[in-house]
Computed example of a mutant assay.
Amino acid sequence: MSSVASQVILHPTVGQSLKVLGTTLGRDKIYRATQYFARFFAWLLISRGYKLEATRWNALKSHLALARKLLRLGKPLENLQAALRAAQATGDLKEQVTTIGRQLGYLGYLSYDAIVWANTVRFITLKPATAQKVTKTANRFWLAGILFSLAHAVFKAGRLTKEATQLRQLGEKDLGGENARDARLRAIEVLRSGTRRQFLIDIFDLWIPAAGLGLVDLNDGVLGIFGFITSVIALQTQWAAVNSK
């Protein structure tokens, strides 16, 4: 029995999972996936008349959302640093501008989200109308950040496609060898894959702040599924990044 337990506990997958859980981003994505699944499942139960059973899932959703706000308290500074680095970088102007816009959008979103957290835990006290305005402002910044991110993905994908086409058209003498060209093409494909993944995440996440602002009419079931899908995709990316080291 102890041998079986040891094989389970010491299994490589368990070790890889612990690596992911050892990162703030990894924990956040696991919490987020659970939070949005709880949002979907609570809606499903309520829609079928199981209001009492839905209470625990709504509570889980709320507590995980609050925990995630706490985890992200220092994140706006990272976004500010990323925006400053993008402003100082050289490269495609459209990508540079959209990167700055995306980071400033997330900076505003997470800053106002921190105020929402402080009000929720009673560290500060806001009037209900003020709290609602703060939440809406956070959603506006979130939506703006996602829109900039989508624009950035479009511009970057176009540039990478153009670069890949040009490389395929170059002869070996022009690039210094077929191996160098193939290596660069593989690197471009990795970048394109990451860009497509982020674009997919943004397409699904877009509807969450849009619904919060009343721009679209989507129920918690749809939004819960959207959030769960993007959380799983982001978690897979973090899993690969952590366990490739």
Score class of each variant (00 low, 15 high):
residue 3 S to D: 13
residue 4 V to E: 12
residue 4 V to W: 04
residue 13 T to C: 10
residue 13 T to F: 13
residue 15 G to Q: 09
residue 20 V to Q: 08
residue 23 T to K: 13
residue 24 T to S: 11
residue 26 G to I: 03
residue 41 F to R: 04
residue 44 L to M: 09
residue 45 L to Q: 07
residue 52 L to W: 00
residue 54 A to N: 03
residue 57 W to H: 01
residue 61 K to T: 02
residue 63 H to M: 13
residue 64 L to D: 05
residue 73 L to S: 03
residue 76 P to V: 15
residue 83 A to L: 01
residue 84 L to Q: 11
residue 95 E to V: 09
residue 102 R to I: 02
residue 107 L to G: 08
residue 109 Y to V: 07
residue 110 L to E: 04
residue 112 Y to V: 11
residue 112 Y to Q: 08
residue 113 D to H: 02
residue 125 T to G: 00
residue 127 K to T: 14
residue 129 A to Y: 14
residue 131 A to Q: 08
residue 131 A to C: 12
residue 135 T to C: 01
residue 138 A to S: 12
residue 138 A to N: 07
residue 140 R to Q: 14
residue 147 L to S: 00
residue 149 S to V: 07
residue 153 A to P: 06
residue 153 A to G: 00
residue 154 V to S: 07
residue 155 F to P: 02
residue 162 K to A: 14
residue 165 T to G: 15
residue 179 N to W: 08
residue 181 R to Q: 04
residue 186 R to A: 13
residue 189 E to F: 12
residue 198 Q to R: 12
residue 199 F to Y: 10
residue 201 I to F: 06
residue 203 I to G: 09
residue 206 L to F: 12
residue 206 L to Q: 02
residue 207 W to C: 11
residue 215 L to H: 06
residue 217 D to H: 10
residue 225 I to D: 05
residue 228 F to T: 01
residue 234 A to E: 09
residue 234 A to M: 00
residue 238 Q to T: 14
residue 241 A to K: 06
